[in-house]
Amino acid sequence: MISAALADALDRWLVHSGAIEGKAGATLVAYRHDVSTFLTFMTLHHGGPQGFAAIAQIEVADMRAWMAQMRGTGLSSRSLARALSAVKGFYTWLAAREGFEPTAVLAARAPKFQRNLPRPLEVDDARRLMDRVEVQSNEPWVAARDLAVITLLYGSGLRISEALSLTGEDYPLPDVLRMTGKGGKQRLVPVLPIAAAAVKDYVRRTPYAPVAGAPLFRGVRGGALSPRIIQKMIEQVRLQLGLPASATPHALRHSFATHLLAAGGDLRSIQELLGHASLSTTQAYTAVDAAHLMQIYDRAHPRARSE
C-alpha cells in the first residue's frame, strides 16, 4: 500500500534514528508500525499511491482524519500521541531532504492524557525491602548480588537495564559512573560508598570473578543476570512485606528521585542524575506533594529571602 520510494525513505529514516539518534530497537519497531500505518491511511484516504509529491501536500484536514480514524479503532490517547510523535519525526526528516514544508503535520496536536507515574516507596519501606533482599536467597553470593543491584537502583537512580549493563571493566566501581541511558544520552552518576561496598561484597562472594567484556552481575549458571530474576525477587519480597504492587525495580529509581527532592535536592540536579532530556519530565516523575514544593519555593525565592 506504500510506494516503493516512501518505503525506502522509511527504512533510511529508521537507520538514521538508530545510528545517529541512538533509538533503541523496540522504539524503532514501534516507529515503523506507526509511520507505516500513517502512510497506508494516506494512500487509502487519497485513493492512490502516495509518492513524495503527494505526501508533501498533506493538509491539516488530512491529519485530523487520520487521528479520528485511529481513535475510532480504539487506540488510546497515549498511543496516538506516540504515533503522532513518530510521524512528525519522519515527516521532518523527509521534508528536510525533499525540500517541502512540513507545517501541516507538525501543527497537529497530540491528545492530552494522564501520565501513569510509578509511586515511590516510603523511606521506611525502602529500608525494609533492602533488609529483606539481603536474606532472601539461601545462597549467600546470590543474596549479595541481589542486594548490590537493588542498592544501585535506589542509591544511584539507575534503571535496571543500566545496572545490569555493568561489566568486569567497571569493577571496582569508581566514585562516578558514566552511564548511557535512553537515546544514547550519557550522564555522570555518583556512586555512594554503601553501593560500592555492596558490589565489593558481591564480588568477594561470587564464584564468577569479574572478567573484561563479561557482565559484572551473573546468573547462577554464569550467564548474564536477567532483569526478570530481579523483578521476580522483588515481587516475592513485596508480598512478604505487604508492600503495594507498585513496589517494582523501577519504583526504586523513582523513590531515589522523590526522596532526594524531599531532602532538599533541586530539580535540575535530579534531572541530570536521572538522565532526563527535559526538566518537565523530571517534574512529572518526582511526585512530591504541592505543600513541600511550596516550602522549597519559599526558601529559594529571592523575595522570600529578603523578607
Rank of each mutant, 00 (worst) to 15 (best):
N116T: 13
R119N: 11
R119I: 05
E122N: 12
D125K: 06
D125F: 11
A126M: 13
R127V: 14
R128A: 15
R128N: 14
L129S: 08
M130S: 12
M130T: 07
R132P: 06
V133M: 15
V133A: 13
V133P: 12
E134I: 06
S137Y: 06
P140K: 11
W141D: 05
W141V: 13
V142W: 02
D146E: 08
D146M: 08
L147P: 10
A148S: 07
I150F: 13
T151R: 15
L153Q: 05
L153K: 03
L153W: 06
G155F: 03
L158E: 01
R159V: 09
I160N: 03
E162S: 09
L164K: 03
L164C: 03
S165A: 14
L166R: 01
G168N: 03
P172E: 08
L173D: 00
P174T: 05
D175G: 12
R178F: 01
T180F: 01
T180G: 01
K182Q: 06
G183T: 06
G184C: 06
Q186C: 03
R187E: 04
V189F: 02
V189K: 00
P190F: 02
P190C: 02
P193H: 10
I194F: 14
I194A: 12
A195E: 03
A198H: 00
K200R: 14
V203R: 00
R204M: 12
T206I: 10
A209L: 15
A209F: 04
A209D: 11
P215N: 04
P215H: 09
L216P: 01
G219M: 04
R221Q: 13
R221N: 12
G222N: 07
G222F: 07
L225W: 01
I229A: 11
I230G: 00
I230H: 00
Q231N: 08
Q231V: 11
K232V: 15
M233F: 04
M233V: 12
I234R: 00
Q236L: 10
V237W: 01
R238K: 11
Q240T: 14
Q240S: 15
L241N: 10
G242V: 12
G242N: 09
L243H: 01
A245F: 10
S246N: 03
S246R: 02
